[in-house]
Amino acid sequence: MNPRRKQRLIIVLGVGGLLSAAVALMLFALNDNIDLFYTPSEVVSGKQGTLPQVGQRLRIGGLVVPGSVTRDPESLDVTFALIDTGPQVTVSYQGILPDLFREGQGIVATGVLTQATHIRAQEVLAKHDEEYMPPELAEKLKGIKHQKPAKMEGATW
């Protein structure tokens, strides 16, 4: 092999190796920022045969079970249950909930799985539009009926 070709080959292989290493490092760094979306049924029974691990960050979406919201009177701690078509998952959150949060409403919570069916949420988002929802979640929620919250006496909206 010609020495000049050999030098070019070494340079091309070196640049290729550096690019591969840079891409691998970026993917490794982004791995901590990935939050997989689960429904309550997928948290309990697994998603594509894989159960989420305790300590894993995840997003969970479902309907707040009517009658399940409990608030600590001395702090901002709130605990509620989420459901889709199967088992319930308990979510605990410390902070002020969104204005649109209510029982029977669809929400998405981001947090850490602390037990097999318990999530400690850092963020709770209330769904504001009932027209659009991801197709996977719409299929799972087709058979569920939720109650609209009762109107408050004397409320002026």
Rank of each mutant, 00 (worst) to 15 (best):
M1G: 12
M1C: 07
P3H: 00
R5V: 04
K6I: 07
Q7A: 08
R8W: 06
L9F: 07
I10V: 06
I10F: 06
I10Y: 07
I11K: 07
L13R: 12
V15A: 10
V15N: 09
G16I: 06
G17S: 10
L18C: 13
S20I: 10
S20P: 07
A21Y: 13
V23P: 00
A24C: 04
L30V: 07
N33Y: 14
I34R: 11
D35Y: 14
D35K: 04
D35I: 05
Y38E: 13
P40A: 04
P40E: 07
S41G: 11
S41T: 05
V43K: 03
V44W: 15
S45W: 08
S45N: 12
G46L: 14
Q48T: 13
Q48K: 11
G49Q: 01
G49W: 01
T50G: 02
T50Y: 08
P52K: 06
Q53N: 08
V54Q: 15
G55V: 14
Q56E: 04
Q56M: 12
Q56R: 11
R59I: 02
I60P: 00
I60F: 03
G61P: 00
G62S: 10
G62Q: 03
L63Q: 06
V64N: 01
G67N: 10
R71I: 04
D72S: 14
D72H: 12
P73N: 00
E74Q: 14
E74P: 03
S75L: 05
L76Q: 07
L76V: 10
D77N: 12
T79I: 11
F80G: 03
F80W: 11
L82A: 04
I83E: 10
G86Q: 10
P87N: 02
P87D: 01
Q88G: 02
V89T: 08
V89Y: 00
V89K: 03
T90V: 13
Y93A: 09
G95A: 09
G95N: 09
I96H: 03
P98I: 01
D99C: 00
L100K: 14
L100G: 09
E103G: 15
E103N: 05
E103A: 11
G104W: 04
Q105H: 13
Q105C: 09
Q105I: 05
G106V: 00
G106R: 08
G106Q: 04
V108M: 06
A109K: 08
G111Q: 11
V112W: 03
V112H: 03
L113K: 12
T114K: 15
T117D: 12
H118S: 09
A121Q: 04
Q122M: 14
Q122A: 06
V124K: 07
V124P: 06
L125A: 05
L125P: 05
L125Q: 14
A126D: 01
K127F: 05
E130K: 10
M133L: 14
M133Y: 03
P135I: 01
L137K: 03
L137E: 11
A138Y: 05
E139D: 08
L141K: 08
K142L: 11
K142Y: 01
I144S: 13
K145N: 09
H146G: 02
Q147L: 08
K151G: 07
K151H: 06
M152V: 15
T156S: 05
